[in-house]
Amino acid sequence: MANADSNHASIGAVVAGFGLSLVLTALSFASVMSGLVPRDQQLTAIVVLAVLQLLAQLVFFLHLGTAPEQRNTTVIFILTTLLIATVVSGSLWVMHNANANMTPMQMSVEMAKSRE
């Protein structure tokens, strides 16, 4: 009766997840705020750190993995990431092209407002 969910968490996993997340968060903020990372590499740095932190929390807090009782959630999650990648990258691609190919507007915001 005691286990409505089969994923038995351990203190070790929670502490490890928390510690890793703290370090990765600190590194993310430091790489932008400290100025130690060159500006053109900051975006790469924070994206890599965010992905690492997402993975750390998925494994230690949400108990994703390859064990038989974890497989269902893991497969559903991977499918969702594919959908998310499609939605986000597709939107950005389509909207970038729509923006780049738009007829130029020879009108400033002030001019548009004064015509009302």
């Binding site: 932008v32 975006l43 997402l54 807090f61 949400l62």
Partner: peptide, 17 residues
Amino acid sequence: DLVWICVFTFVYLREAI
């Protein structure tokens, strides 16, 4: 918390670069 990782990375930190 997972969603927030994406928020602080792609909204706040990315804007601050």
